[in-house]
Design a protein around this nucleic acid. Structure first.
Lengths: 231, 231
DNA sequence: TACACTTTTCATCACTTGATGAAAAAACGC
DNA sequence: GCGTTTTTTCATCAAGTGATGAAAAGTGTA
């Protein structure tokens, strides 16, 4: 599809295209990311990745080894950026609000970085979120992969929520997190389903609409579960 | 794994194994369902399906044609049962409650049939829900598939909610439905992620715990979005 | 038994898959 | 320039892919 000429390098501008190998590596990761996001791990062949990156098949194995290692490289590339952004956001919220923290505020600090990155980060990030959503729903090996990369920041969320609502049970917090992540991931993956379902009334690419509703939605659901259990 | 002997028929009990073809067809669908649910469409080969069903590869093509048609047969087999159960449940709720309908009641009538079926329907249904969840997060062809089978009952939900909250905007209703379905599908697919995340505190197979929280969670989120937009 | 019909198996095809070793090309150090 | 190392291409392999036609086995009907 987006076929690249075999030897088109880094824009032909600025530095005299010194780094020959490194940006090809990134190009391969970009192509793999988009394809994996659309068709899943097994739905993509190394030849497709190579073709879209404008590169020989063997080069993929030269840089990344086996196909699964390529996938992991795609997954890990943005995971750390993501985790750091969320962690920073939540820490900032805790520091600036102190005793005035609210459930909705904490949830917003947890989700909003992802929305913002998706809005400002270009197509690569959108593909990545679709990829994560897919992995999240893969029973076979998705669970371990998600846990390996995203457990710490989730625990940070749960612990912060526990500070805001000290009488909440951890069981409830974890269940509510699961509900939250289901909604969030589906929104971030922008499947386009809501577009046809609502007959054009909503657009899954309209993350501003998500922002205007998701925080309040999750926070209210959250409070309801916690208080109901308390009663 | 669950290898079946090539000629083990319908339990060896009761009728003298008259229906030779039809129950083999079901056996193939069962095997395909489980494998597709775990590894996705592209992660499964017709040979694997045949092996687990204890059947020759060619028989799959004899009954279902191409691999994709097999997948569609798996998908459609339970979709109608599902839709009817939900439709019946919602109609019953509307009839029995009339003016006393609540948002939470409608949502429960929409979700609870799925939870009940998953609890009482055996492993086949659990696999099926995992499969649907996976399709729901597949950008390539998942959207059309979901729309084709599940749009009507969703519109029924949205319309009923509109009756309960006449001043709500359809845009909000559709967005809230998307949040709801993200949570619901993740819960139904029982990925096991919450088990390790909560360090044993929660179990994704515990649908009773889901029932005790999800309805209230979604309903409260719902009311919050609707009333917030009104203000 | 003979016949028609359906179901199941067997053998195989044309093609794709992930992967590799060796050669070629490019980049680098001097 | 020259030797070395890294990067990229080429040719190819062994295994597996979905699919099919023809034969075999089974089933029902006279």
């Amino acid at each position: 599809m987006t076929a690249a000429k075999p030897r088109a390098r880094s824009g032909g501008r600025g530095r005299p295209s010194k780094a020959t190998g490194l940006d090809l590596k990134e190009t391969i990761l970009d192509s793999a990311e988009g394809l994996f996001a659309r068709h899943g791990f097994h739905g993509v062949t190394t030849r497709q990745v190579a073709a879209e990156a404008g590169v020989d098949t063997a080069l993929i194995h030269y840089y990344f080894g086996a196909k699964r290692e390529l996938f992991d490289a795609v997954f890990v590339r943005r995971a750390e950026i993501l985790n750091q952004a969320r962690s920073v956001s939540m820490n900032a919220y805790v520091e600036t609000h102190g005793d005035a923290m609210t459930v909705e505020g904490v949830i917003e600090a947890f989700i909003d970085p992802l929305l913002r990155i998706s809005q400002d980060g270009g197509q690569g990030w959108k593909s990545y979120f679709a990829l994560v959503a897919q992995v999240n729903n893969t029973p076979a090996w998705g669970g371990e992969t998600m846990a390996r990369f995203f457990d710490p920041v989730v625990h940070q969320l749960v612990d912060t929520l526990k500070v805001v609502r000290p009488d909440a049970e951890y069981r409830d917090l974890y269940w509510c997190y699961q509900f939250l992540t289901g909604s969030m991931m589906l929104a971030l993956s922008e499947t386009g389903r809501i577009d046809s379902l609502s007959e054009g009334l909503c657009h899954s690419s309209d993350l501003e609409a998500v922002r205007a509703r998701l925080f309040a939605y999750c926070a209210a659901g959250f409070e309801a579960v916690v208080s109901r259990r308390k009663a």
